[in-house]
Amino acid sequence: MSLGEHEWAPPGVDPERPTVARVHDALLGGTENFASDRAVARKLKDVVPEVVNLVWCDRAFVGRVVDYLVREAGIRQIIDLGAGLPTVENTHEVAQFADPTCRVVYVDNDPMVEPHAKAILGGNANADAITADLRDVDAVLGHPALRRLIDLSQPTAVLVIGVLHLLADHEDPHGVVRRYVAALPPGGHLAASGFLASGNPKAKALEVMLQATMGTGHFRDRAAITRFFDGLVPVEPGVVHFPEWHPDERLPGPLAPWEELLLGGVARKPHP
């Protein structure tokens, strides 16, 4: 889609306005982005050169989480909120590699995500993508495409990874997450993450640049991120930095400063 000054955009898409999904795609080296998105990606890399590593770290975390949910937690249905543009090792690919019967629905408010995801999904009968705002819980959970694939009376996982920092406090992100958790049956799982507010200079630099370029980006302290899991049973090791959650290999030593920017975890909804 890199067509210089005359980039084609689907109907309803303004190529002059960067979006989180397309900036994310640009950082990953994808092609589903515009000049405006690439400009934001460059600015983010200027203030935190490791931001590309951060994005790939996020992808790896999602992969390990999904693999755990399917292989160890017995989950066969996943709702991926704020999924962004499909890249590599997508949620449905990881889940269906572990069990081809897994059903996955991607949700994003960027109108480019749904058609791109559907093209990648092809004839995959057990995966779909919908355009919806995760803040509108009723619209998401009541969407016909989601209802076709997801039976909320059966063990289901909701992923809100790499997206909650886009919700300001006045949008009540904790309340939004609680509503999704309330819709899950006992044994359902929540996987969530957030950018960590700290004395780390990279944290403040990235937060300031996100707000300057995207108009959003809210870092939260450990207590606020942990509160997304209130009432749930945490999966070990709890809410930790991404590289510390079920690492594929033993960590070689202290985390790099950029690896300390994100916290995430998984928790299970208990039986009454």
Rank of each mutant, 00 (worst) to 15 (best):
E171G: 04
N109D: 11
G123V: 01
A192P: 10
S198C: 05
E114K: 11
E207G: 01
V140P: 08
E114C: 11
V107M: 12
Y180D: 05
A132G: 02
D108K: 00
H174C: 00
K118G: 01
G194S: 14
A132I: 02
V160M: 13
F195W: 03
A183N: 11
G175Y: 08
A119M: 13
T156F: 02
K204H: 15
P173G: 01
P186T: 09
A205C: 03
R178L: 09
D110I: 06
L190I: 08
H143S: 06
A182V: 07
M112N: 06
G142T: 06
L210I: 00
A157I: 01
T213K: 06
P186V: 10
L196A: 11
E207W: 04
L134P: 00
A203T: 11
V177K: 00
L149N: 04
V137F: 15
N200E: 09
Q154T: 03
G188W: 13
T131H: 13
M112V: 15
M209F: 04
G122P: 12
L146E: 04
L141G: 07
A212H: 07
L210Q: 09
Y106E: 00
R179N: 06
N124H: 08
M209N: 02
L190R: 00
A168V: 05
T156I: 02
A117M: 04
F195E: 00
A157H: 01
L121M: 15
A129C: 15
D138P: 03
A192G: 09
L149Q: 03
N109A: 09
N126T: 14
G194Y: 07
P144A: 08
K202T: 01
P115G: 10
V137G: 11
Y106M: 03
I150M: 08
G123S: 12
V107E: 07
K204R: 15
A191E: 14
R147K: 08
K202R: 12
G142R: 09
G175A: 02
N126S: 14
Q154Y: 05
K118P: 00
A132E: 04
V113R: 05
L166E: 14
I130W: 14
S198V: 06
A205G: 02
D151N: 10
G162Q: 05
D128S: 15
H170R: 09
P144K: 04
D133Y: 09
L134R: 02
A203I: 08
I130P: 11
L149H: 05
A117V: 05
A119S: 13
T131R: 14
G199V: 06
E207D: 10
G188F: 14
V107S: 09
A129W: 13
H165P: 01
A182G: 13
D128E: 15
P201A: 07
L196Q: 05
D133A: 03
G175H: 06
R179E: 15
H189Q: 11
A183S: 15
P144Q: 05
G188I: 11
D133G: 03
Y106G: 00
L134D: 04
L152V: 02
H143G: 03
D151K: 02
K118N: 09
L164I: 11
A129Y: 12
